[in-house]
Every structure is written in C-alpha cells, then in structure tokens.
Design a protein around this nucleic acid. Sequence first.
DNA 1: GCCCGCGTTGTGACCGCTCACAATCCTCGC
DNA 2: GCGAGGATTGTGAGCGGTCACAACGCGGGC
Lengths: 356, 356
Amino acid sequence: MFVTGHTRSCDSADPPQGRRKAASIRDVARAAGVSYQTVSRVVNGHPNVREETRKRVQEAISALGFRRNATAFALASGVTRSITVLTSNTLLYGYAATLQGLEEATRAAGHTLGVRVLTPEDDLDRTIASAADAGGGLVVIGFDRLGAAALDRVPAHVPCAAVVEAPPPGSTPGLPAVWADDREAARAATEHLLSLGHDTVHYVAIPASTGSPRSVGPRAEGRRQALESAGVAVPEPSGKGWDAQAGYEAGRKLARNPEATAILCGNDDLALGVLRALHHAGRRVPQDVSVVGFDDAPHSAYVTPSLTTVRMDFQGLGRAAFGLLRTRLDPDQQAPVAPPAAPTLVLRESAGPRRR
Amino acid sequence: MFVTGHTRSCDSADPPQGRRKAASIRDVARAAGVSYQTVSRVVNGHPNVREETRKRVQEAISALGFRRNATAFALASGVTRSITVLTSNTLLYGYAATLQGLEEATRAAGHTLGVRVLTPEDDLDRTIASAADAGGGLVVIGFDRLGAAALDRVPAHVPCAAVVEAPPPGSTPGLPAVWADDREAARAATEHLLSLGHDTVHYVAIPASTGSPRSVGPRAEGRRQALESAGVAVPEPSGKGWDAQAGYEAGRKLARNPEATAILCGNDDLALGVLRALHHAGRRVPQDVSVVGFDDAPHSAYVTPSLTTVRMDFQGLGRAAFGLLRTRLDPDQQAPVAPPAAPTLVLRESAGPRRR
DNA sequence: GCCCGCGTTGTGACCGCTCACAATCCTCGC
DNA sequence: GCGAGGATTGTGAGCGGTCACAACGCGGGC
C-alpha cells in the first residue's frame, strides 16, 4: 500500500486480528493454581518457593507468554530503571559520541535511555520537570549555553548528573559532574604549535557554554595561558558557531593575515572550514599555515591534509556520567565510576614547522 | 570533591535534606476541599467543573507543586506517550540524522523517545520484547543487517514502524515503512558520471541490509541498472564496511586501476576514504578520477575537493516513520504523514569531465 | 505430646491514577 | 410548585504489580 511512493502504511489490515491483552500475574496464578503472590515470587526469583511450585509457575508463564508489566512494576515498587538525557544537539560529534557512551553504559546496566533535545524555545523548567518525572534520573550535556542553562535549573531533589565543558567554578556544590581537561589539552596543542616555531597561535573558538561575557571556555583559556607563559602575543579569538561554515568564515579573515601561521580550532568542524578557507585563499597547509583541531571526529584522519587534533574520550565521559548518576540513584552501588581517558594530541599532517 | 580530577560526585551532602514525597492527586484534593476525582478532572481539563472549583483546585495544585504521576497515569489509562527506536548505530551520519528527525517529531507530538542500540550479541527477541513493553511503540532503523533482522522479528501485535533502505519485497504485508528512493538516486548519480564522459562507473558499496547474497542493496542496484541501460561494462562492486577506513582500502585497489576514472560510493565516509587513497596514489580528483558520495554528510561540502554527493532527507525519513507509527497507535489521528524529500544530486568539485 | 520456628503460601492494602456510575445540586418549563 | 434534565460532584472498582503480614504444614527439641 503505497501512500507517496516513499511510505507504506498498513492501515486497517490489522485491527480485526484483535490484539489480545497481555497476561497478568493473576492470569498466570490461575493457570498454575497458585496465588498471584507466588507468581510474583517466582518472577522475582524469591528464594522461598518450593521447587515444584516454581516449575509449575514457570510453565504457566511461558505458556501464557507472560511478561511483567514494566509500568505497574514501576508504580508499585517505585523503581524506574530509566534515565533521560537532555542535550541541545545530537548531530555534532562531541554530543553524538557522548550520547553513545551514555547509551552503552545505560544498556549495560539494564536501564533504559530517553533522549530529549533542548531548543531555545523550550521552557526549561517545564522541560526538566517532565523529563524528570518520566523516570529515574537525568543526565544533562552541558557543552553549550543551553545545556548549561538547563543544568542550573535542575531542582535539587531530582537525581541528575552532568557532563560539562569544564569544572564548575568552585562554589556550586550540587551536581555530580564529569569533564575532560580541555584547558590542559588546549595548552598542550598550543605548545606544540609554538614548538614548531610559530610566533603565536590564533584561535577559532566554539561558542562558550557560560553566560558570563568574561568566560571564554577552557579551550580558549588553555591556549591563552600557553601563549602567556611563552610570553608571546595573544591574538583575539574569532569564530561564531560550531560548524564548518563558521570555521570557513573565520578562516577567510585569518587567511588574509600573513602573520597567522598557526591556528587552533575549537573543534574539528571549525578546523575543516578553516582548512577550506585557507585552500581558497591559496595558502598551503601545513607549509604556509598550520591548523590544529579539537575532538578527533571520525573523518578528521581522512581529510587531506589529515587533521592534527586533540582526541577526546566522549564515550568515556558519557559512561562516567551514567556511573555518577547511578551511584546517586542507588548509593550502595558497587561498581566504581571509571574516569574517562585524558585528552591526547594526535599528530597528523595539518600542523608542521613554521617556514620563513 | 574530586574523585579523579575529571569527576565530581556529591555524595551524602544530599540525603539529609529529605526528599519529600511528591504530592498526589489526593493531597491536592484534601487541600482544595474536593474529591480526588475533581482534581483529576481539573488536571485533565475536563469541561464540567465549576469555574470557582477549578480555580481552587488549580491553586492547591500550584501550592503543592503537584505534577501528575506519569507512571500511574500510564498504568491506569493504558496510554503511554512514548516510543523507542531500535538502531544498530548512532554515530554514522544517516543513522544520527534519522534519529534527529525522529526525536524532533516525537517531541513535537509531546511524546518521549527512547533509544536502544542493537548489537550482534543481542538476543533480538528478548531485546524487542523489552523495548516493546517499555512503552507505546517501536521504530526500527533497518539500514543494515542487524536492523533488518530485528525488523522481521517484531511480533505482529506490537505497534512498529520502520525506516528501511528499500521497499520490502512486495510480499511482506505487515509493517508500515518509509524509505527513500536510493535506487533512483544511484541511477541519477551514475548517469551524471557517464554524462561526464566516463566509460563506466565503479562502485564502493556499503554493506547490504538483507541476508540474501544476491541482493546488494538499492544503491548498487541503481548504479547497475544505469550502466546496463547505457550498455557499458559493470565492474564488480568493492568495499567491505561503512567507514572511511573501508573506503580507503577499496580506494587503494581502485587507484591502481587506470580504467577506474569514476567511482560512486555508498556513503560519504567511504568516499572520503577513497579520496584519501587516490591522493596517496597520486591520482588527482577530479582531473584523473571522479568521485561521488552518498548522503551529503555535513562535512562533505567542506573537504577538498568538496564532495559531489546525493543529499538524503534522513530527518524527513525519521519524521515520516514517527508519523506512520503514530497513526498506527492512534488510528483517528488527523495529521497526515509528510513524505520525505526526494534524494537530490548535489554537484560539487569531486566529479568532473573525463580527461584523456 | 506440645510448642517453637522455619519454609511456604495466601490475603489485604496500597502505589497514583483512570474509568464507570451513582448522587447531588440547579435551573428551567409548564 | 414540581419533575425533568443537565451540570457538578463523589464513590467504588480496577490498572498490574509490590509490600507487610497472617496462615498453614512440617520437623525437631524438650
């Protein structure tokens, strides 16, 4: 049944078959000739059930295709093995990879993962509230302004963990959080470029995650610190977006500046745009200009020139965030939370020695 | 409190504050001096409630910070506004973009989205069953073998929609499904290359989604048909994976073949690998070899040479799949399902006229 | 022979909400 | 002025499980 040539629905071919209602614990009890409580005991592996009874019940269970109703279980027991993640984006590499780590950990723990994308139009409080009462806990990805804003509107009583861009300024006591040492990584990347003989390092920034105008994010900060330590000039960062287009625009300006021989970018997409802009301007990479990215997105190793970048363990961040939330939800949880791997600089073709 | 320098938990600072139990409908009723049923009526916007009563109840609601317990609602009403998507991948562009469309549509409809990643180790039946009783319906992304396998194990009685690579072979009546016309798109891409003067078009394939060894997927098929129509040779497809690495390996072989002047790739990642391999082999693109990708991933416009590729409306696919599921779940659903946009060939730098 | 304690099973209440229906209140028309 | 009928409100039951506790059958120690 073709609706548009792209879609096939199967209306009304189905209703007649009458979706029979799922068997309940009491149906099983009746079939096995025991009380519903005994069935409950069997289902939950309670020890004190005579072996023969258990067997009889189990047979009834599989005969009727019984599955314990998750909703009823949640209502009665108060246990919801589910978490939901709040994020403003699912497509950008850092977000998607964090999500992946989160999903993996969630799945391994036998929980269920919900995803709710945050938009600027959202009433954050409402959104958080409804996500919160969907289940057992929240993980907020606070890489950007929106995520960070959501983060500090989470009421204290809702279990929540966060993955953030940088450690929250000392004071905030509340939330368990994970982060990578972006600042240190940016510093290392910058020092690498400096060691290659570049006079200074320009920076194409990703948008900051905090509201305060002073704060520019740990990556920008690390690069600034490295430059200052080296006693070299600190050119003003550029960049106004997350994607390659933003990188391209920033790159066009930088390409016109003959002094700009080393460019650090806030992420690999930005770097890609910068590369493209330099190419259009006729500046060769790495001979004329060196470019370093951030995140090590999957394609960065395959572009030409391949991108020198900082590998980030986003999956590990996601896993750790889940771990934190889990211990929050269930304090006598054994499994310790494995820390994510430290960022590492991966050297490829896009950065090379300064040539004069 | 630093655990590893990357993780901050906030144990035991919290319990003392005593998470007071959420107010229930009866608490509100007591506070407002009405019966719990009246509260229920107000909460659900039932018409027959005296204006003054409604107001009183509403005040009690906000005074107590009441929110209707979603679990109890689901149990009592049997309505679960939630769907879960089954996919074997969340990072590859096609999947991630489909997921995004799905999330958007889900959110717009006020539903909740769960994500469950499929792995080869999964017991598919068990996985499907538990995903099914998590809520209101399933969407399966059947782009690959695993997804397709999951798809045909979904029991008839669980509401499910699928987004697939190609229309299921005539017979299968069951599932509502969405797909794009990949075959036609591949044909168009192939014809474009032929029209550029290439003798034939090589193909680096993505893995097939069906088990049958004969079936190679609609993209391979469209290219084959185009070549046959043109009466030119049909070189054997290569490629054994989804990512740039697989593309690179296939590209290395192709690079050694001087006859291979036009290469169509099953996706943009593959194309990127091919581009890289050609570069390493010293073959220029597009002067010596033309390359065309598939999917139009975000970075494809920014690599150099920028990638000629086929833009796919994955978001639209996701939205449509949700629409299908929704009408399945709720037959008297008004909103018609908008069909996704047709694939379009986007011309960029990586494909050009054959030069001899 | 009786009581205790354990293993096993059943019963009642409840989680927080919805449904169906009964009870009450008003208002209107004749 | 009274009954009909609609608007409002309340009550009981149940969704499908869990918990707490009571009831039963049994063997052992005294």
